[in-house]
Write a protein that binds this DNA or RNA. Sequence first.
DNA 1: CGCCGGTGTTGACAGTGACCATATAGTGGG
DNA 2: CCCACTATATGGTCACTGTCAACACCGGCG
Lengths: 239, 239
Amino acid sequence: MVTVNTGGTAMPKIRSASPPYHHGDLRRALIDSALALVTEEQDWTFSLREVARRAGVSHNAPYNHFPEKRDLLDAVAAVGFERLREGLLATIAGIDDMAAALAMSGEAYVLLGIGNPALYRLMFGPALSVSGGGDQPMLARAAGAEARAVLQGIIRRGAGAGTFAVAAEDERAIALATLSAWSAVHGLTMLIIDGVAGPGFAVEEMIERVIGIEVAGLRSFSARIRRPIRAWRRKGDWR
Amino acid sequence: MVTVNTGGTAMPKIRSASPPYHHGDLRRALIDSALALVTEEQDWTFSLREVARRAGVSHNAPYNHFPEKRDLLDAVAAVGFERLREGLLATIAGIDDMAAALAMSGEAYVLLGIGNPALYRLMFGPALSVSGGGDQPMLARAAGAEARAVLQGIIRRGAGAGTFAVAAEDERAIALATLSAWSAVHGLTMLIIDGVAGPGFAVEEMIERVIGIEVAGLRSFSARIRRPIRAWRRKGDWR
DNA sequence: CGCCGGTGTTGACAGTGACCATATAGTGGG
DNA sequence: CCCACTATATGGTCACTGTCAACACCGGCG
């Protein structure tokens, strides 16, 4: 498991509980302020200066902890992934039927996501994307992998129990099945957040149906579909 | 069908083919420039002034066609949805087996999406979101609905032919099944774009498996899943 | 005790989105 | 044919942003 280490900077051997020099724990305070801003404004276009103001420090103090604004958002996204992971783990605790565990964790996933749309979008947004030339958003990426591992564990156990039509010893098949389940819940969450799912449907209705179809698909052996048109790879003048 | 009307502004009764006053067709040029910038930089943090520079006009000219930057991005996203819709329609032309049509359009969908990640993210990003207080991004929203209608048509025909386990006359069930399919391809596209799907899997491999499971799920009758924990609705201190 | 490096501050700069008033160029009414 | 009118484009301006650079603080270490 990866802990994001929100408190305690790169101090050599000092115990991280000891209050840092001036502010107390500015790094933590900045992450908290940014998270609060994301939650309140449902947007992360706020200025770094606003975050600094909230934390009660000068407009340049954050640069001692985050080289760019991007890095602060990365840390916020990582916190979001950690909370998501904890929510999933708490939901499936004590459940033996992996189909039920998948369904319930799927519902928890979507509900957690739509509970804070901007945070969820941030988690999968610019902080995760590799588009930016230089550096990777390692914190969010690692935390996201930890969250995904929860789903993968459910699939793996379900495969072992024969609940899902996946070879239990085939890690690649398990990973692909996990990808399928993750795609379903992630896609649904995003569509609901964007307001394009529905309208006219209750959230529980949509969740139940989408996850129901997903579980049904995982239970049956994968039907070989006809090989799709390869020519489409570059054909569309999409650019 | 909704045409985004990229050319021709709100002229009273003039035929929209007539070239506007000064520039020729600035609105169109701005959309094209912005689309090119999104494609090149894989990001839409470019300045409105940069778009104006590209179009060869002053930094304030765009405001005559788009009240805010957001509105220009909305128009760009709408163009993306139109191209997506056209790509889907071209892919399924002449196919009678709706399961195959769904699979092939699904593959086309994902490939088109990952062909221009920033554009795809923009389509489902801030332009679509309702989070911003005032106005809606109507262009992208309408164009997105048109694209979704293609998928919905496939599901409807498949329901009528008995290919999918959906009551053909139940429009709500059809809409929910469409949502399921859309969630799968949308989620997969986003996960691939974000670089968290895989690594170690070929794109075709992931597409084939995820869509295969989705089609299998749609073919079988939806198994009633156990009612998930309602208590989780507000339990997680996600905020 | 005095240095030192991590921490926070002040100051500055180019660039941005959005507004204002103003100039201009086509268009329709006469 | 001419002129007023309105959509279109321009330059100017303002508050604000992210980031850089130089400086002030302070606790721990030699």
